[in-house]
């Protein structure tokens, strides 16, 4: 019963017009949830949470750096699942969602890298340290950029999406190896660096802001994903009747003066 309902829902979302309506209705709520969680989380992070024992106030960067890193990696996994669905069942909505996930994942990776660098300057005394985590995130950014560039290089967006999906899967296989090899490489080459978290236990007071900002990034990803996927569908089907029906209000109210 539940299973069949889920299946029906899944199949319905595979249809572009239904997906578009769904995204139009759901995305604003996700944006609202993102703003609420993030504002509350940032308030806790900047005003309520105590300064870290060792790192003082610079540890406040953690509350955005870590959620961004988590979501950047989760975004890749979600993108890979969507790419696999796209390749196996050839569902166009899945193709499009996979391609819509790449720029968001890249943006989150960028947040992680820039905040990591801004954290590194006061902590390590340098903007860039060839630390295992930062290096793998940099490689992840390049993979995201490669996927976006490959998708954009095809004139036929459907072909581009399927080819880029193959790259997404290849990247998924390779990412754990990259992470492992980079970690191995840094332990061989690098002297001591300050471990940002590592073994040290987190103070309980650091948990609530982290939870809220983490939730915020999840909602950010979901909202941006729906928005972007809907746009890609509308653009691909712009000559079809359903797009004109779907955009009718926006098309009409500007027509009046003319």
């Amino acid at each position: 019963m539940i299973w069949s309902t889920l299946k029906l829902w899944f199949h319905k979302l595979g249809s572009p017009p239904i997906f578009s309506v769904f995204a139009r209705r759901v995305a604003p709520w996700l944006w609202a949830a993102f703003f609420a969680c993030t504002l509350y989380g940032v308030y806790l992070a900047l005003y309520v949470a105590p300064p870290d024992y060792q790192q003082s106030d610079s540890a406040r960067i953690l509350y955005i750096h870590v959620p961004a890193a988590w979501q950047a990696m989760l975004a890749y996994v979600i993108m890979a699942v969507l790419a696999a669905i796209a390749l196996i069942w050839r569902i166009r909505t899945a193709e499009i969602m996979a391609m819509a996930a790449a720029p968001i994942g890249a943006a989150l990776t960028l947040i992680c890298l820039v905040t990591g660098s801004l954290w590194g300057k006061p902590m390590w005394g340098t903007w860039w340290e060839w630390d295992a985590r930062l290096t793998s995130m940099l490689v992840l950014l390049f993979i995201y950029v490669g996927i976006m560039a490959l998708y954009a290089a095809y004139d036929d967006p459907r072909k581009g999406a399927r080819v880029a999906s193959v790259l997404v899967i290849a990247g998924l296989v390779n990412l754990p190896i990259i992470h492992f090899s980079v970690e191995w490489w840094t332990t061989l080459h690098q002297g001591q660096t300050i471990r940002i978290f590592g073994e040290s236990k987190m103070d309980p007071s650091m948990i609530p802001p982290l939870i809220w900002t983490t939730l915020g990034t999840k909602f950010l990803f979901g909202a941006a994903l729906l928005d972007r996927a809907r746009n890609l569908l509308l653009a691909q089907d712009q000559h079809k009747a359903w797009v004109r029906r779907e955009l009718a209000p926006a098309l009409d109210d500007r027509k009046q003066p003319a």
């Binding site: 940032v42 900047l46 106030d57 960067i61 955005i64 947040i111 820039v114 801004l118 300057k121 006061p122």
Partner: peptide, 12 residues
């Protein structure tokens, strides 16, 4: 530390 923290949140 302020400039680093604030610019991090700004980038975010």
């Amino acid at each position: 530390y302020a400039p680093f923290v604030w610019s991090s949140y700004g980038v975010f």
